[in-house]
Write a protein that binds this DNA or RNA. Structure first.
Lengths: 344, 344
DNA sequence: TTGAAAGCGCTAACAT
DNA sequence: ATGTTAGCGCTTTCAA
């Protein structure tokens, strides 16, 4: 079933059918109805390949997650990536696009993977998930080839030239540390995420800024460069226990959970002896003992907004470059030094 | 850059370039090399839309997950779906296909969602993830339209006519129950998953069969129809506690974790008072207290195998209908009545 | 072994 | 307001 068949049945020309399908003006109500009736009767949908060939548009966007979902980076919380994927998918479907998924895999070299993505031209644009490293090559090629793309998370290089959606990690981290200080904590340590990652860097910077603002001397030995997972949180906390600290700002909830465990194993009380604040507000944060005080970031909204921006860019409804920061919220539970349990 | 440009530069015709790209015979080594050189110099890749238009093949497969990833069905273990998505993605990339993702979303009616998927014709075939319900309409339409597809999980209707990859849920469940019996347990209850789901049904059947085989009378009040999540596990276990049971076979690990909690809150010991066996062997199964005895199923392999089957079908290297069952393994930890902790 | 030419199903410029 | 026509970039006969 093709355009021509519909045209014949409706007694009009191909172009008229095309016009009806694309909702163009200059079609009389009568013929429009005639054509619509046939289209519906036949359940006709135009061939996307033919359409793409002539319009040079596919109504498909690509999503690139440079690392395997089961990677150390995300092993503890598939929740984070699931939510992102869902956010993107919902928005693309809502706007009548389709989603092509490019997941990094451990068998393939990164360069080959990126080339595969770049060479596949059946996408109007891309959403790139900022990861622990390595996506710069992809980003540079994308910039050079003028393929529209939006990053989820601040890019490491030339952020001012790149479309991205993120959160204000610096202020959020700063606020978390200030909160710990307000609870009477003064030797506040931090365990960072993978330091090649922009989020990790910015949260560390927020930690530093908070010290400056509060006038607390910054002890560099209280900064442990870790990775965004539970095992590193546990290990890094063990190290910090030797230094004597009364609070820890963990760069994400997985790290925080690892830290909680190390503290408890050492026989110390949370938050009395050591207070802990995490980042993300994953579902697990509400169920730890004690429940985790953490910075809530709108993961789903971030993904949806990034997708929206990309589609707006594609449709000429937004200007490039655009940078969007979404708000975060400090969720105070039991791990930070306050006795109450204001859960939400 | 198109075929014609390459042809001109190489001093041959379009058809010859096409032949080289598609690795056809009857191209002299000399011209093949000449052409290859130009292709590589220009980093040329043929336009997929043009190709799809003429060949009627896209080298794209679709993946349909009928429910949102954050749905109750999977809320507790994004791990399950992440692993599936990764398994599919890895295999498609390895075989030089691309992956189009269709995630159900809560804003859209199921019928509309399926129509969207069915009408989008730029896919050679589909992998459908069996879910709690509702995908029958999709399956029927797919069968009628002769679009090749493979289900992940046994389909509810006409399984003999459908390509699918699953595990032998019946035997696996049976084995789990037999193991509980071998530990001296006789009032063995079960908490099922969403009963519209084939896995849930089959695991329940295995539970029944085990009783028959072992000659234990089956007490229907020990069967609680639940859902595949922690909250239902908790709730269902509370109910079972009133009936007096000494073991529970949970239809998945999330349910088992909920059950563990209910048992512990009641002040009972695991496994001495009540033994628990789960299903899936999610990462969390190894970290519960006590560690969970569970049926390990090869989630990643299932997804990869389903994808492989689909691609083989598409390339005429497999015959439809094909049904594949992958093996499972009972992983004995501490929750089932045995004192040892053979972790793997 | 290579080239010429038709055509996949659609859109868009141009006529009318 | 509608139809005619020329491609979009490729594959695939068919002829040479």
């Amino acid at each position: 079933m093709k355009l021509e068949d519909i045209a014949r049945q409706a007694g009009v020309s191909r172009s008229t059918v095309s016009r009806v399908i694309n909702g163009e003006r200059y079609v009389s109500d009568l013929t429009r109805q005639k054509v619509m009736r046939v289209i519906e009767a036949e359940q006709f949908t135009p061939n996307p390949a033919a359409r793409a060939l002539v319009t040079q548009r596919t109504s498909v966007i690509g999503v690139v997650i440079p690392h395997p979902l089961q990677d150390v980076f995300s092993a503890d919380d598939p929740h984070y990536f699931s939510t992102i994927i869902q956010g993107i998918s919902d928005k693309t479907q809502q706007r009548d696009y389709a989603t092509l998924l490019w997941l990094g895999n451990s068998n393939e070299e990164a360069t080959r993977f990126y080339r595969r993505v770049l060479q596949y031209r059946m996408m109007d644009g891309l959403v790139i998930i900022a990861s622990v490293d390595g996506e710069e090559m992809l980003v540079e090629n994308l910039l050079a080839s003028h393929i529209p793309f939006v990053m989820l998370g601040r890019p490491l290089r030339t952020p001012e030239a790149i479309n991205y959606v993120s959160i204000d990690n610096v202020s959020a981290a700063q606020q978390a540390v200030q909160h710990l200080f307000s609870q009477g904590k003064t030797r506040i340590a931090t365990i960072t995420g993978d330091i090649e990652n922009a989020d990790a860097q910015d949260r560390l910077q927020g930690y530093r800024q908070a010290h400056q603002l509060l006038g607390i001397p910054l002890d560099e030995t209280l900064i442990v460069k870790g990775r965004f997972n539970r095992a590193w949180g546990y290990r890094s906390m063990k190290q910090l226990l030797k230094q004597g600290v009364d609070a820890v700002f963990a760069a994400n909830d997985s790290i925080a959970v690892g830290a909680l465990r190390a503290i408890q194993e050492a026989g110390l009380r949370i938050p009395e002896d050591i207070a802990v604040v995490g980042f993300d507000d994953l579902p697990l944060a509400a169920t730890t003992t004690p429940a985790l005080t953490t910075v809530r970031q709108p993961i789903y909204a971030k993904a949806a907004r990034a997708t929206e921006l990309l589609l707006d860019l594609l449709e000429g409804r937004a200007q490039s470059p655009a940078q969007i920061l979404l708000p975060t919220q400090l969720v105070i539970r039991h791990s930070c030094g306050i006795g109450t349990g204001a859960l939400q």
